[in-house]
Design a protein around this nucleic acid. Structure first.
Lengths: 241, 241
DNA sequence: GGCGTTCCTTGATGCAAGTCAATCTGCTTT
DNA sequence: AAAGCAGATTGACTTGCATCAAGGAACGCC
């Protein structure tokens, strides 16, 4: 649970930075929370979405599906991520709650009105959208040109970088990643079959690059090797440096 | 060649709609043209780009490259498309002129200042960016889950929809598509090898769905079949209806 | 504690697309 | 007209990943 916007908890960055803009105070009457249970669909592709929202807690996915059931994930939403499309009635992909999800929503129309009057908010929306676009274009490279091993290693690197509150380094310089997704959701993320994902997990483990702690926690033993395996070009500093 | 903004030719839609906003008149001093020859690189990945621009004529690509040379196209720019990133110094992908290209440029800083003062221009930028994001997410589905045949058919559908000035329907209800790309650029677009692209051309031809007029002009004989082959779900009306 | 469900792993097999290589087709150049 | 060249096609072979199939491990529930 989070209070009114000025009192948002730290992790709730999106709304904090948004609500701290004075113009946004005027939006309080258009603000409300929504809760979804794990597995529930938040919007179906093609349906109306009359709010924009910030993810307070939980994980959700955005995905496209072909008629025969093949699906490709096109977005992964975690705490502080933004959901919704100003000036667009309909959402072209399906959004699904992976865990229980809490959204901090604003009715779309009032939000758009405030946006029109607030250059700061407009700039922030554009900035977020450009970030998503950049991420999406990296994803194109991953799907179009990377091998299964590179894809999975890349996913681990991406998740490591996004770990909310900074990645957890355990003593010994090891890095812990909590997987927010099951194997078959990772398969939908990576454009692979779930069996191939599983094989890549095993392969990286055999190579001593990662270790598992249960099915959902990966401990990275050799981050440099992981980066290499991901096809990453630049030593980006990474979450541990 | 195009004149000052209020006199832009029809095809130069981006600048027209932009420049017709009164605020943008103030940008005339920051406006200039740039010309590139076919094959020339406009920006390298990671380099600064100090202008934003509208494509006046020609075709350019945006692409990511891995160290070993594998490349994935992440954007295709044609007349009236927008190039550049407000509030971002550097461009994360390489932009290359495929044909001779003319850009109508604005220095980035003045553009950003006008944007901050003009809700209309901000809204337009956000709108364009959301369009690119949607296109990019469709592209993820294509790369992640479609077969070679579906990929190539999808590309033809995309190009048909984008043909500037509306697609050309020849007598007999046939649809003509001028390919802006060579086979191996199409391969980079689709995440395939150039040989596979070539085989898909031949396959669609054998099936009577398309006919070729030289290497660069495709005549669609059966648009419905092409749509089906692309994995398209909805009868979208399409360029001929 | 036992049982069912959901998620994960591993193996065997097949196929779509990649790779390597040879040839063909227009275009441009001289 | 001949030569040269970039781009496209086609064939033969290889391979990475999907598919099909059978268990195994973790976690809930009664």
């Amino acid at each position: 649970m989070h209070g009114s916007c000025p009192d948002c908890p730290v992790r709730h960055q999106a709304i904090c930075s948004t609500c701290n803009a004075p113009e946004l105070r005027r939006l309080e009457h258009a603000r409300y929370d929504r809760r979804y249970e794990a597995g529930q669909v938040i919007v179906w592709a093609g349906d109306r979405l009359d709010f924009v929202a910030s993810v307070v807690s939980g994980v959700a996915t955005m995905s496209h599906t072909l008629e025969d059931g093949r699906t490709q994930m096109v977005g992964l939403l975690q705490a502080s991520d933004f959901l919704g499309r100003p000036h667009r009635e309909r959402t072209p992909y399906t959004v699904t709650a992976v865990t229980d999800v809490v959204l901090c929503c604003f009715r779309r129309k009032p939000f758009e009105e405030v946006m029109a009057a607030s250059p700061a908010l407009s700039a922030q929306m554009l900035d977020r959208t450009l970030d998503e676009l950049d991420a999406s274009r990296e994803w194109l490279l991953l799907l179009g040109r990377k091998s299964a091993r590179e894809k999975f290693a890349s996913l681990l690197v991406i998740l490591a970088r996004r770990e909310v509150g900074g990645p957890q380094a355990s003593p010994g310089g090891e890095l812990q990643i909590d997987l927010p997704l099951t194997r078959d959701m990772m398969a939908d993320y990576l454009g692979l079959s779930l069996e191939t994902v599983s094989r890549q997990v095993s392969a990286l483990r055999r190579d001593g690059i990662i270790r598992l702690n249960g099915n959902r926690t990966v401990i990275v033993q050799d981050y440099a090797a992981l980066l290499t395996a991901s096809g990453e070009t630049d030593a980006d500093g990474g979450p541990l440096s």
